[in-house]
């Protein structure tokens, strides 16, 4: 018994060290959970073609992805990272410090963030200013910032329904929340002249005003799981939810997207850039790994092919909003030539 165990332990140790020393033959991707559904779909198609192993895609969040991606060059570090925003300067610097100097940026398409409600509710049209008033912790009333006094939508504007303000949305750790603050709350706050003045005089205080979401129960942090929000909206006709367009697309029989600034969140409106709450999605590739890890170039080629990210491609079917024709072409040439970002 003891002898068998010892043999097993030795065998295990040998196998593991041999394995660790071996070079990797499989692409590894980390990063944003928003880009994850698209990168995985491409990975699956790429693997099905049979020439290379299916890439392994981890969902670590944009920030966590860059941290892993920038940690160094070599088989122990990921080859690609997904991001729901462009790389920050600080991240570029940390990349460069660890020897990751040549990074290829690929914009893959757009994602809309929608304010949706059950089909049983009345269809509404809100402005970003009204959304700010409904959701910010402190709002201006008669020129002074006070604790948010609004409890029903029609207190903000008579055209809105007389129901209680109840919005289910992502928690602060989520990239969707960051994008929502940047695309809705910031322009919403700027619509008030007194806050706009604040931006000029005190940038930090301004940031605090638009990024503080009320905590009195009108905004409910629903966790990272968007399916949960969908179920809750279906059960409660008065509630609104904030999540990515693909979930609205999949549940269009139960939910409706509210119009923001007069534009409904449809595929065409987001693709045309008319819907105001949309953001670009990115994938970053490590140029130093091309040629070291097999298949990176081919994987990028699959991603940038029309059958993947084109208007009728399989990514559009998964809810990705494709870029306009000219931009796709431009990105594809740039990416396939492995043009690195300027540091």
């Amino acid at each position: 018994m003891r002898k068998t165990l010892a043999v097993a332990a030795v065998a295990l140790a040998t196998v593991s060290f041999a394995g660790a020393a071996q070079a990797r033959d499989q692409i590894r991707v980390v990063g944003s959970s928003t880009v994850y559904p698209f990168t995985t779909a491409v990975a699956e198609q790429f693997g099905k073609a049979g020439k290379f192993k299916t890439p392994v895609v981890e969902s670590t969040g944009t920030g966590g992805g860059f941290k892993l991606f920038c940690a160094g060059v070599g088989p122990d570090h990921p080859d690609l990272t997904n991001a729901s925003r462009a790389i920050k300067k600080s991240e570029m610097e940390s990349c460069a410090k660890n020897g990751v100097t040549d990074v290829v940026e690929m914009k893959v398409g757009y994602d809309g963030i929608v304010l949706a409600a059950s089909k049983k509710a009345k269809h509404i049209d809100v402005t970003r200013k009204q959304l700010f008033q409904a959701l910010a912790k402190e709002v201006p009333v008669n020129g002074k910032l006070v604790e948010n006094p609004y409890t029903t939508w029609n207190q903000i504007d008579p055209s809105l329904p007389a129901s209680k303000i109840e919005v289910l949305g992502p928690p602060p750790t989520s990239g969707t929340r960051d994008a929502f603050l940047e695309l809705v709350m910031e322009p919403g706050a700027e619509a008030f002249p007194e806050i706009k003045d604040l931006k000029k005089s005190d940038e930090k205080a301004f940031k605090k005003v638009f990024s503080s979401i009320r905590e009195d129960g009108a905004y409910v942090e629903a966790g990272e799981n968007d399916n949960l929000i969908v179920q809750k909206l279906d059960a409660n006709a008065n509630a609104f939810g904030i999540f990515g367009y693909s979930f609205l697309d999949q549940n269009a029989d139960k939910l409706q997207g509210s119009m923001v600034d007069g534009v409904a969140p449809t595929f065409d409106a987001i693709a045309a850039g008319k819907y105001p709450v949309s953001r670009p999605l990115f994938v970053y590739a490590k140029k130093a790994h091309v040629g070291q890890i097999p298949g990176i170039k081919e994987y990028l080629a699959e991603y940038t092919s029309e059958k993947a990210w084109g208007k009728a491609g399989y990514l559009a079917d998964k809810g990705l909003i494709p870029m306009p024709d000219s931009e796709r072409k431009e990105q594809a040439t740039k990416v396939n030539a492995l043009e690195a970002l300027k540091m």
């Binding site: 196998v15 394995g19 980390v30 995985t40 693997g47 299916t54 392994v56 895609v57 981890e58 969902s59």
Partner: peptide
């Protein structure tokens, strides 16, 4: 440790 990931291939060994 990176096990929360999209993995299609059936693992053939613990490595």
């Amino acid at each position: 440790i990176g096990m929360v990931a999209f993995i299609v291939d059936i693992p053939a060994s613990p490595l």
